[in-house]
């Protein structure tokens, strides 16, 4: 099925600015879904609020555009009651990790089979460029005119300590990686996290003088390296790309169905 068939024409034109990284993510994600040969009826896409969260409107799946920060909680209810469906949850960094941080760590801890895709542009785009928990120290933003004093955290480290059983990172420059990683994340049985470093030229780029979207993507190329490549020896500050965690642990809805079997055997108790 060509990628266009996954798109809802009537939701277009999209709201994203020219050069925004989110369109690249959408493209890479649809390609992954196409290559996996998933039927549109078995995909539920759940999103929260923000530029990135508008993705759910544009695709022809079962789509749930919810409230800020809570997409994973809504998705958990869908998955619990219909475990055979594929749940994909695109989120921005603020949506997933500021207001939604609690749901993120607990969905990871439960190891419920959801695919969380975090488009990390280090800024609140929709509200006009305020700093996010991923902005990091020394960044200019609409609410940080003197530059940020907050520190960020590493999504991969957080995912790991919270219990995610799959975690990977790539960038909008590495479009092929986006597709291959999302494919693996969807196939993974358990909570999977995909961080995609994405550009917001309109705010983060402009406020921090990083140039246009091409120049910002060039930076993703320059400032990252594949896990295991020896580039890191030359420059310790390079951010790693690739799969950080991939392990098997009992999945939440599977464990629940085992519990149901036990409970049904004990029906007459109480």
């Amino acid at each position: 099925m060509p990628v266009q068939d996954y798109i809802r024409d009537r939701f277009f034109p999209h709201i994203w600015c020219p050069g925004c990284g989110h369109g690249i993510v959408l493209n890479g994600m649809l390609k992954a879904i196409e290559e996996l040969g998933l039927s549109k009826n078995e995909i539920v896409m759940v999103s929260g609020i923000g530029c990135s969260s508008r993705i759910s409107g544009y695709v022809d799946f079962h789509t749930l555009h919810t409230i800020h920060g809570r997409a994973l909680a809504f998705a958990s209810g869908v998955k619990m009651s219909r475990p055979e469906l594929n749940l994909i949850i695109p989120m921005g960094d603020g949506d997933a990790l500021a207001i939604g941080g609690n749901h993120f760590i607990h969905a990871a801890r439960r190891n419920i089979d959801l695919t969380a895709i975090i488009m990390n542009n280090r800024i609140y785009g929709m509200t006009g460029g305020q700093f996010s928990p991923l902005s990091g120290h020394g960044i200019k933003a609409s609410t940080a005119p003197y530059s940020t004093i907050d520190h960020d955290f590493d999504i991969m480290e957080l995912a790991k300590s919270a219990g995610a059983t799959f975690a990977a990172r790539t960038t909008t420059f590495h479009i092929k990686e986006i597709t291959s990683i999302i494919k693996k994340a969807i196939l993974h049985e358990g909570f999977s996290v995909v961080e995609i470093m994405s550009q917001c030229p309109t705010y983060f780029g402009k406020q921090n003088k990083l140039g246009n979207s091409f120049e910002m993507m060039e930076l993703f190329k320059k400032n990252t390296r594949k896990i295991g490549s020896n580039k890191k020896l030359e420059n310790k500050n390079l951010i790693e790309r690739g799969i950080f965690i991939q392990k098997e642990l009992p999945e939440y809805t599977n464990e629940y169905s085992k519990m149901v079997k036990i409970a049904m055997g004990k029906k007459n108790e109480r």
Partner: peptide, 22 residues
């Protein structure tokens, strides 16, 4: 299905998600 969630916000969200599956 019984789910103990991380807070009441998540509880409310989860039941809405499940209602959508019927």
């Amino acid at each position: 299905y019984f789910m103990q969630m991380e807070d009441e916000i998540a509880s409310m969200c989860a039941i809405i998600g499940a209602s959508l599956t019927g």
